[in-house]
């Protein structure tokens, strides 16, 4: 069994937003749709004792997604390998999944024709991986810093497996019980 996950190494991320733009152009997204915003609270602390951090995000491809069971049409679904995606031929745009996601990672575009507003979200580049097996999601490839690492957590030899097992990681909103599958390697900021 394959279970695809992503590790994001915050020690490497410099907040350049390349992944954000890459995703928008690779997937040809409408202007107001952002699958993977890179968040930051800016430089924190009292000058000159300061720190800063960036948090690249994307769909958490949760093990127990909130957004799948709530879908009344079955458009929102999860593959065997854990990929959560929306089949836009089944979606009617009710946005219940958009409201269900605790991470705010789904949306409908308001810059497309009024009656064509289906729910969009990150699919771990499902089509790209299907067309060219072995390729990573495009945000992973495009990251110069190699801060995003993608792979099969079930494979003990995969890089993600090794990292998750050997380095301390955290996940977002674990307390919600969604079991998110994006693992962050923390960077504490400041000077070691």
């Amino acid at each position: 069994m394959t279970r695809n996950v992503m590790v994001i190494d915050l020690r490497r991320c410099v907040g350049c937003q390349s992944c954000t733009v890459a995703c928008r152009t690779w997937n040809d997204l409408p202007m107001d749709i952002i699958y993977n915003p890179v968040l930051t609270e800016g430089v924190q602390g009292d000058w000159p004792n300061v720190h800063r951090n960036w948090l690249p995000t994307l769909c958490m491809h949760c093990e127990n997604p909130e957004c799948v069971p709530c879908c009344p049409t079955g458009a929102s679904q999860q593959d065997e390998d854990g990929t959560v995606w929306v089949d836009h031929t089944k979606c009617m745009g009710c946005k219940v999944c958009v409201n269900a996601c605790p991470y705010g990672m789904r949306d409908v575009s308001h810059m497309v024709p009024r009656f064509d507003q289906y729910v969009r979200k990150c699919t771990f580049c499902r089509d790209r991986r299907q067309n060219e097996p072995g390729k990573d999601p495009y945000c992973v490839q495009t990251c110069h810093q190699k801060a995003r690492i993608f792979g099969d957590i079930e494979d003990p030899n995969s890089e993600v497996s090794k990292l998750i097992n050997s380095v301390e990681t955290f996940r977002l909103f674990e307390e919600l019980g969604t079991n998110p599958q994006i693992y962050y390697i923390p960077f504490l900021g400041g000077h070691r």
Partner: peptide
Amino acid sequence: TNAGGLCCRGNIALK
């Protein structure tokens, strides 16, 4: 040399 990487600017080449 970029090992597949492209930044914000590189990715908008077609635009």
